[in-house]
């Protein structure tokens, strides 16, 4: 067999910020898919009447679900901002290395601010998710 160059395997791939932003966006999307599942379960519970809703609320207040809500706040904040970055890229803008590096930091900054904001509203203000 001719010795052709192989594309780098993940294990020998040099760590770069592009890898992190990309894989985080994918992971955040998967978490949000779980969130959609939880949302529809909750909507079904509302539609099933008061007693069914009370039972569902008890389950949705379990620690596992609080962890999910924390993940959802983080995932939503990141996926939203990183997604807008992708949409801007799709217009052909911001693809130069320096611009992409700057926008990666911008995405990190803005999504952390959003996480704090949504997290505060969801868990602190009025303590609604309790």
């Amino acid at each position: 067999m001719p010795q052709r160059p192989l594309s780098p395997h993940l294990s020998v791939y040099k760590f770069q910020y592009t890898l992190t932003t990309s894989i985080l966006n994918r992971a955040a999307g998967l978490v949000l898919s779980l969130g959609l599942l939880a949302l529809v379960y909750w909507l079904m519970a509302v539609a099933s009447g008061t007693s069914a809703y009370t039972r569902a609320s008890a389950m949705l207040s379990l620690g596992v679900f609080k962890l999910l809500y924390l993940g959802l706040v983080a995932a939503f904040s990141y996926h939203l901002v990183a997604g807008v970055r992708h949409l801007i890229w799709d217009t052909g803008r911001g693809l130069e290395r320096e611009q992409a590096r700057r926008s990666a930091w911008l995405v990190a900054g803005v999504s952390i601010v959003l996480m704090a904001l949504f997290g505060y509203c969801a868990f602190m203000a009025g303590a609604r998710i309790s």
Binding site: L39, V40, L43, M44, V46, A47, S48, G49
Partner: peptide, 14 residues
């Protein structure tokens, strides 16, 4: 399921 649940509540049969 989501659309069904929303319409059920919105149409007042919950």
């Amino acid at each position: 399921a989501g659309v069904f649940a929303i319409l059920k509540v919105a149409c007042g049969s919950a």
